[in-house]
Structures are given as structure tokens and as C-alpha cells.
Amino acid sequence: MSARKLKSKMLLKVARAATLTAITPFALAAPNITSSDYDDTGNTLTLFGSGFGNPGFKFAFLESVDSSRLSSGGRITEYSYESIWDQYGTAWAKPLVPKGMEGPAPQTNNQLYYGGPGKADNSYIKPVEEQESRALYVSWNYRPSMDPNQAGGSNKFIRIWDDHSGTHTRISWTQMHLTYVAKDVAGSDGVSWSNWSGNVNEWNLLEVFVDSDAGTIGAWTNGKRVHNITNYTKSPISDGLGVRLLGFDASVETPYVSMETYIDNLYVSNTPAKVVLSTKPTWDTSILSTSVAQLPIKWTDSTITLALDQNNFTEDFYIYVLDENRLVNREGYPLSGCAKCPLSPTLTIE
């Protein structure tokens, strides 16, 4: 090849690269809500717009207010507290139990999980395990009465396994690190070190997303990414991922014997794309600590249908859609058709 042709080819590659770099920021458009329709007979809200993403939504489980519901295949199934978990506490830990008190957002009859003092956790959400999913997103509002890093130790917020025996995939997020391993796959163990970065005696939002096909694990506290793992390997067994433990599991209980744990708005899905409500009209990551996840029934790039009861809300709320890439509409969308919420803005010409 002549020097001139080689130079032309190289310039073409540079030009293509520059073009791709230039268009990449615009290729991912943030969600945009243009209108909504509220059905008060079925307590559903449908959002219309664009850029909602195509997250491959299959299921979502939501424990919020005083009910727990699973959305799967376009259907909603309700569960009582007694039928959700496979195990309530252990010989070494108290169970997470329902408690009526003020949660992270203004809602009526708020029922949240309380654990303590000391170690408290529940194990395996049975409706989630039945989904046999290779991807698992879990978010929950978390309020500790002490810093879970105050006296050291390895203090778990959540464990994600794919088999009850614990001999296959094991993922554990603590206040100081996130560990991961497929016990039956050589060389699959790893650790990511990072402080949990939350606030004591305040509501925080904890999120973790495990994607077995992409080989990634991400964890966030109040919207800040604290773990970014790209070499995760799932065990080759067919069992899907499940919540092995949720709550506060200190490796040594004595320093934390008086610690109280509060959890609300537990949300689990196969995708991190979700819809949240906030009392704030514009987006800021601080919204996350007091936002309220909603239960989607159907999700496409231009429409999302949610199970939503307007009677649960005591203040004005605004809607935010987060797609699978965590892009979000910066201006909150006021609920329309909601008696206790502001109407969508209208244009008046004089």
C-alpha cells in the first residue's frame, strides 16, 4: 500500500472516531414524559413519552407502605408479610418486622421494616426466587441509628446467592467492601474495597445490580457509585439469583448491640430501570434518599404503566424515570389525574 493511501486510511479512521465521539453524548437521550393517564378504578398510571429505554423488564417486587406486590407478566400478585420471606431472623439475629412509623417519604399508613437492637435480617424473598433471573437489581431505603463502620468488622447489608447451600455464587456487600465468588469456578473470587458512604440517623438509598451475562456488579449509596466490578462470574448452575440476606449482619455483634435498623421501599427487579416519586420538582441525586419506588406493570421506550394508588400520598409528588443506564428526566413530571397532586402544566396564551 502506498504512503498516500495509508495516510488517507488513517485519516478516515480518525475522522470516524471523531464523529463517533461527537455523537455519543446525544445517542443516549434522557427520558422525557409528555403526558399521563390515571385509571382510578384499577389504580394504574400510564406515562407517555420517549427515551424510557428498553430494559427488558420481566418482573419487579415492591414492599412499600403496608403491602408487598409482585409484578410479572402484566399481573400483580399481593403478599402478606408472613408469606414473603423464606426465613425471618436466625439463631444469631432478630427478624426484620413490620413497624408503623415515619418513613423516607410522606405517605399515609406507612409500614416499614424494623430490626434491632443489634443484628437483624431476613432471608430469601420467595416471589423473587421464583423468577430464576440471572440479573438482579435491589434497592432499599436504609436508616441506621449507628454508623455500620463505627467499630469495624465485616457488617453485611445484603447477600446475593443463587443456591441455598452457599456452594455456588456468593455476593456480599458490607460497610467496607463488596466480595464475590462462584465457589465452583476456579479463580472467580474478588473483592472491591470502598466505604459504604451513607449517613447515620438519616434515610439513605442503597442499590446493587448484578448482571451475570455482562459479568458486572454495581453498588450505589445515595446515587454515588461505590463499587464497579467488571470481572464477576456466576456459577454455571441454572438457579437464578436471590436475596440471601437483607438487613444488618455484623460479624461481631457486641459493638453494635444497641444499633437499630430501618428499611423501607424494598424494590427488586431484573433491571435497574425504574420509576420513582419525589416531592422535589427538579432532579438532584439527594432526591434518591427520600424517593419512593413504584411498581411497573409494563415498560416500553414510549409507555410505562405503573400500579399506583393516589390515596397513599399526602403531599404533591413528581415523577422521575430512570432508564437502564441511570439517565433521568431532570424536570419532575407532576402527577395528572391525582386528586392530591398538582396537575400537569398547561400553556396559557393571552
Rank of each mutant, 00 (worst) to 15 (best):
V191F: 01
W161G: 04
F209Y: 15
G116K: 10
D121C: 09
M146Q: 15
P106M: 06
D211N: 14
I125G: 02
N122R: 04
R134D: 12
V185W: 10
A186W: 10
T167M: 11
R134C: 02
G198E: 13
D211I: 03
A182Y: 10
V200Q: 11
G103D: 03
L136G: 02
P104S: 12
R143M: 13
V185A: 08
N141Q: 12
N155F: 06
N204C: 12
N149I: 07
K183R: 14
V191D: 07
V208W: 02
V128F: 04
F157C: 04
W161H: 14
S194F: 14
G198R: 12
Q175C: 12
T174H: 08
P148S: 06
V181L: 03
P117H: 05
G116L: 08
W196E: 01
I125M: 07
T179M: 07
Q107N: 01
R170W: 08
S154E: 10
P148M: 08
P127F: 04
Q131K: 11
G198W: 14
Y114F: 14
N199M: 13
H168S: 14
S188N: 06
Y114E: 06
E207V: 08
H177S: 14
W140Y: 13
N195S: 14
H177P: 02
H177Q: 14
Y124K: 11
N141V: 07
G187S: 04
I158V: 13
A105N: 09
S154R: 05
A135H: 07
G152L: 10
D163K: 08
I171F: 01
A120F: 08
V210F: 05
V181F: 02
V185M: 09
N199Y: 12
T108R: 11
T169R: 02
V128Q: 01
V185H: 09
S194E: 13
R134E: 09
G103Q: 06
W173I: 01
G116M: 10
S197N: 15
N195C: 03
T179L: 04
H164Y: 08
D211A: 05
G198Y: 13
G187V: 06
A120Q: 05
